[in-house]
Design a protein around this nucleic acid. Structure first.
Lengths: 135, 135
DNA sequence: CCTATTATAGATAATGTGTGTCTATAATAG
DNA sequence: CTATTATAGACACACATTATCTATAATAGG
């Protein structure tokens, strides 16, 4: 029950793209340079973000990745679900009665958890990071 | 990022023990009979609950498992952590700066999530299950 | 005592997922 | 045309989960 390293890479890449948003496209090699991850592996993760519509890719020379149009709206939840997949973070009791009281209780807590992550916008976090820089 | 099957078995076992609490000890074979799990595997899970102090075991004939003394206080969080282990549900950025804004944000949401699970008592769920029985 | 019952512990295997690499292909700028 | 860059497929490896089997310890009841 934990986030994967892929999600870790994705979140930090999104934060980096947001911090350097004015500078046009950024290549995978540059993005991978900020973290300890190979370019081919990171590119697979970024492709998920592209398919989820969170970032835009341009192949070819001077290409790379940049944020989507209304990038200010992207939340932590968007990134996490793009990488880990929508399906029930707790796929639970799948064969049991859907009215199982345990399943109901955990799903209630899960719902609140996801909703909170859905309120946390990358843009806001980037703004905080600018004030107290660490990267 | 999901709960393991072991936790699933543990939670349902706890619910069952709570529902049949007045009836003394219950053997693993009976507990396993209610779920699709082998006795030896379930016993390993239950041993974790014993070591966490959530249930009490008695070996020998007519032995088995029963709830601890103040069983009314046991929460979903207690069971989950007994099986999955305390350590950070999101062990995240472990090598990074602890003031990483992403880590801070997720840990905040995680804290609320765990706190909510900590308010959900098995005894209350059992009471609800009695009113609308499914097991 | 003796025996059946029951929890516990160790060794081991199967399975799946996450992680990662390598290679090939497609697209774009200059 | 060439260098650059994203994308996709095949493949391998590590690791945790899941699970089984066997052996050991402890208790109740005759």
């Amino acid at each position: 029950m934990k986030l994967s390293k892929s999600t870790h890479y994705a979140l930090h890449t999104m934060l980096h793209l947001t911090l350097s948003h004015a500078e046009g496209h950024t290549s995978v090699s540059k993005l991978a340079g900020h973290q300890q991850v190979s370019t081919t592996y990171l590119s697979k993760i970024l492709t998920k973000l592209v398919k989820a519509g969170l970032i835009v890719s341009v192949p070819g020379a001077n290409g790379g990745y940049k944020l989507k149009a209304n990038w200010q709206e992207t939340t932590l939840l968007d990134v996490i679900q793009a990488v880990e997949g929508l399906p029930p973070i707790f796929d639970y009791c799948e064969d049991h009665n859907p009215s199982c009281i345990i399943q109901q209780s955990i799903q209630k807590a899960e719902k609140n958890f996801l909703e909170e992550l859905g309120t946390m916008k990358i843009a806001d976090l980037a703004e905080e990071a600018r004030n107290v820089p660490h990267h």
